[in-house]
Design a binder for these strands. Structure first.
Length: 296
DNA sequence: AATTCCAGCAACCGCCCCCTA
DNA sequence: TTAGGGGGCGGTTGCTGGAAT
């Protein structure tokens, strides 16, 4: 069921391409006064020669108040990685957990920072490609294939081992699966749960792999001790966790706002807790939305 | 200095789902 | 029950500016 007509088509003479400041102004004024929705009538009412679809997109991705400008922060990056591992290319769903970021922005970020990373082009490949590209008329199918073959082989190396091991949980998800001794991770690995008005927040990194081997857990932690999400076990919502004392939030990783501290506990030998690097508050996390604090 | 390459991003396209008449 | 419109989503394209050659 395709109804491009309802959104407008070229026969109706819709303008396309980059938006001008004047168009932005018109759209902003109209939506500010009349609210979102009814996009198909926006163009006629606001005096824009843009399709409703184009208007909606411009508003959602650029004009809407509260949009964050600037680079994706490491915390946001962590969330993107985790949620993408969880849900795949559900950009709009992922965007819901990144206030001020749009699905388009996240999608673009993923494509440029992670998809490309996987297909890292080495200097050798670049050299080869340049050789091929120059002179253009000498482009031969065989040379192209050679270059592609080089790139393909190179990717075999980069696919599994990221330069900083930063994204190991995502990239090596398949290698986790062969471990034989499966134990639910969040049930014993992290000791971060706090009861907050009936909601308890655990830590989210390992949500991407529901189970993990106890025998491999230390090496896994050492290469991937990062997280920024907590999951409410009552409503299932993922939230960024925050320190209940100083309100700092961010990744749980070495050097981040939260540190990992091994807990000496014979009953839970692998258990760990977190402390806030700012105030040293240990294992206290609260809902960043309602700011309800756990009892200390 | 000129040319080519490439990353980043805005915008478009086509498909799908939901709601309503 | 169903067709059509409105809106949303994910994939893709094309432009731009800076880096590399």
């Amino acid at each position: 069921m395709v109804q491009m007509g309802s959104w407008g088509n070229m026969e109706q003479g819709w303008r396309k391409g980059p938006w001008t400041p004047e168009e932005d102004k018109l759209l902003f004024q109209y939506v500010s006064q009349n609210g979102e929705g009814r996009w198909s009538s926006v163009s006629s009412c606001a005096g824009l020669k843009r399709s409703g679809k184009s208007c909606r997109l411009r508003w959602v991705n650029y004009l809407r108040p509260g949009l964050k400008k600037g680079n994706i922060t490491p915390q946001e990056e962590g969330i993107i990685i985790e949620l993408h591992a969880l849900w795949g290319n559900k950009w709009s769903t992922i965007a819901r957990y990144l206030p001020g970021r749009t699905d388009n922005e996240i999608k673009n970020y993923w494509r440029t920072h992670f998809k490309k990373r996987k297909a890292t082009t080495t200097p050798e490949i670049k050299q080869e490609k340049r050789k091929i590209a120059k002179p253009a008329e000498e482009k031969e199918e065989t040379s192209l294939q050679e270059a592609e073959a080089i790139e393909k082989n190179s990717n075999k190396e980069t696919e599994l081992v990221d330069e900083n091991n930063q994204f190991l949980p995502m990239i090596r998800q398949d290698s986790i699966s062969f471990w034989s001794e499966f134990i639910p991770v969040d049930s014993y690995l992290w000791n971060l749960e706090e009861q907050i008005n009936g909601c308890s927040y655990g830590v989210g990194t390992l949500l991407l792999s529901a189970t993990i081997s106890a025998t491999k857990i230390d090496s896994f932690i050492s290469s991937s001790q990062r997280s920024s999400l907590g999951m409410c076990k009552r409503c299932g919502d993922l939230k960024m966790i925050a320190c209940s004392r100083c309100r700092g939030s961010g990744l749980i990783e070495e050097g981040g706002p939260f540190n990992l501290i091994p807990i000496v506990d014979e009953s839970k030998p692998k258990s760990r807790s977190s402390s806030c690097a700012n105030c040293q508050s240990k294992g206290h996390f609260s809902c960043p939305e309602c700011s309800k604090l756990p009892q200390i």
